[in-house]
Design a protein around this nucleic acid. Structure first.
Length: 269
DNA sequence: AGTACGTCCTGATCGC
DNA sequence: TGCGATCAGGACGTAC
């Protein structure tokens, strides 16, 4: 479930922990079957000795900039990161451990094993096909309108397409559509420019508020709490039949490729 | 080309 | 109360 706000919170967490300047001394990659924790070639062994120069983000993709190449981290649906000191126990679902030269380690914890770590030559190898970052300054309303207008599928499906716009997932897409008063079922190309501009603003607002919320509710050890806390960050309940926060009408549910959308059939058209 | 859907994985939740 | 069935979904691969 980590979407842009959660990944951005992890990025800030790593920076607060002072990982920049550290070198990797080794990697314990996964349990058998955690193939997604490597790049399928040399794996992550090549990380050893490389120095962390910075931590960037594009959409849901975390990019650890190295003195040579980059380490791409993607949290999948249930992944998270933790910087641990020698006395700390491993987290329950840690499957990849990155050891640092100051004795600490970065754990990639993921119950569903969908998180991935990939060593690449350049950030563009990881982000080349992605759309603009939804929280970035280059994400303009003009570009958003232009790209969305080209799509004939439902606006909800378009928001989830990382090649159009990077960073928005199922949860915040629903919230932004609710805030903009647009039905998730509406064909993207048949959404007026004015409404798309409203949606563009709603996306930025929803993501900003969520990021701020997470930053204000950190765990005791400084980690962002990023799983299963959506209810507190958003107005729209994720429950079919629950009353719309605005008009009290029962919410509807619809599926887009296996992902459930919740929306108010009265407020969202 | 553009679009739609199945697959991976396992903890949490639902329903009988 | 217990247990099997279903749900959750990000990204990729495949199929229309």
């Amino acid at each position: 479930m980590p979407e842009l706000p959660e990944v951005e919170s992890l990025r800030r967490y790593l920076l607060r922990q002072g990982v920049v300047g550290r070198r990797f001394t080794g990697v314990d990659a996964g349990w058998p079957g955690a193939a997604r924790a490597s790049d399928g070639r040399g794996g992550l062994a090549g990380l050893k000795g490389r120095r962390i120069e910075g931590v960037d983000r594009h959409g849901k993709q975390l990019i650890v900039r190295l003195d040579h190449g980059v380490l791409g981290l993607h949290m999948g649906m249930t992944g998270s990161l933790a910087v641990r000191t020698p006395g700390d126990e491993r987290l329950k679902y840690t499957h990849t451990v990155f050891h640092l030269d100051d004795g600490r380690r970065i754990e990639l914890d993921d119950a569903r094993k969908w998180a991935s770590a990939v060593l690449a030559d350049a950030a563009s190898d990881l982000t080349g096909s992605l759309g603009s970052d939804a929280a970035g300054t280059s994400f303009s309303a003009d570009e958003f309108v232009r790209r969305v207008k080209l799509k004939r599928s439902a606006i909800k499906a378009v928001l989830l397409d990382q090649h159009v716009l990077a960073g928005v997932g199922n949860i915040y897409a629903d919230e932004a559509l609710f805030q903009a008063g647009i039905s998730p079922l509406r064909p993207a190309s048949r959404t007026s420019e004015a409404r798309l501009r409203s949606l563009h603003a709603a996306i930025q607002d929803v993501l900003t508020r969520a990021t701020d919320f997470i930053g204000a509710h950190l765990l005791d050890d400084g980690r962002p709490y990023i799983v299963d806390a959506y209810d507190e960050r958003m107005r729209l309940p994720r429950k079919k039949g629950a009353p719309c926060p605005d008009c009290r009408a029962p919410l509807s549910a619809a599926k887009f490729g296996g992902r459930t959308s919740y929306y108010c059939p009265r407020c969202q058209r």
